[in-house]
Design a protein around this nucleic acid. Sequence first.
DNA 1: GCCCGAAGTGGCACTCAGTGTCAAGGTAGC
DNA 2: GCTACCTTGACACTGAGTGCCACTTCGGGC
Lengths: 214, 214
Amino acid sequence: MDIVSFESSAAPAPGLRERTRRAVRAELTDVALTLFLRQGFDATTVDEIAAVAGISRRSMFRYFASKEAIIFDSMQDVGEQVAEVLAKRPREEDPWISLRHSFGVMITYNVDDPERTLAFWRMLDETASLKARHFEQLMRWQELLVPDIAARLGEAEEGGGYGPCAPAVVGAALACLDAANHAWLRSNGKADVVRLLDEAMRAVRPAEFSSIRP
Amino acid sequence: MDIVSFESSAAPAPGLRERTRRAVRAELTDVALTLFLRQGFDATTVDEIAAVAGISRRSMFRYFASKEAIIFDSMQDVGEQVAEVLAKRPREEDPWISLRHSFGVMITYNVDDPERTLAFWRMLDETASLKARHFEQLMRWQELLVPDIAARLGEAEEGGGYGPCAPAVVGAALACLDAANHAWLRSNGKADVVRLLDEAMRAVRPAEFSSIRP
DNA sequence: GCCCGAAGTGGCACTCAGTGTCAAGGTAGC
DNA sequence: GCTACCTTGACACTGAGTGCCACTTCGGGC
């Protein structure tokens, strides 16, 4: 399964309308991604994507709120998968280890299709507007993971928010993930992502938690 | 000094042209910020800022690469201040402690002018496009701090890049800073930022490093 | 089979950010 | 004062994103 053409497999068949909508969305994402990777994000206009996909420009914006959303909507789905894995980890497990395990979902993309994933990350890294959105995406992942970690840390939700600890721990873990990804990118996909991630997370491993060494 | 109208005080008098340019920049930043805080970022057009500042729309884009840059250029200056403080910390000090100390520069803004800082952070948090750029800004700070931390960790720069550890540690620290800022924001500026930051950084404190307790 | 309301679609016009170009005015150095 | 350069304003243009309206299509009730 591709990191960018991924569609949530949650609901099996929620009516014809919804199914066609999802199919069209997947198709549009695929068309757009191919164009983005071939000629760059900025050099590809929405008109062009719409023309190739055989749809009107106006309808394009009915499927995606923005040009950037074409890319990041599917990444949100990946984040939800990570959250699902995290929820299934044993309650008494060291939170840092749980986070490390749930990141496994992401890392598989790097291993499954290095070429395309590498080109994808490189595009995110080189395009200014995407770089910004990428970090925003990390933040959305943080929001998905914080409730679980807060519960594990025994940090109660008080007055519509958490204390600083759970977001800090999740944010730190995501920083490790990002650092590993960047190091992998700089090595042109030659380095071992898993090893890089372990290295990064070992360097930051909170003192309260037990050892991560395998 | 205000977090947003800050201008680098590095060069004393590098010619008349440069001095006027800086003065105009500061003026523009000030005008724009006032408008942003009064009526919101999206509701303020570049034409409006230019009109109020008595300058042409075209010249506006000669001072700032984008509407967002009006805000984030000054934040970059703050990041450089943080890097300066970090560089002055003793070489043998625990990197985590050094980072914590260098963050002191930022935190002072929250204490000095809570009202304006609070409104400013709230705007960053509520405006989608600014939220994205804000994280990009954190990333730029990371780039400023990584070389120093890499040296402290004994991580050599190999082939145009660092290993994953230094970025991971710096990113983790910035995640703590951000978590503390968010918690402070949620408390409407009532909570103690310094305490929140210490709490967050204690929760994530890497095991290799010694205790941060004062 | 027929009809009706809801949802999807395309086209048009508009706002606003951002960029290239060019001509006019001002400034620094000789 | 002259020249070279830098700054500025004006105009036109592209591209993202939105509001609106008319048309078609689909799903369900009769």
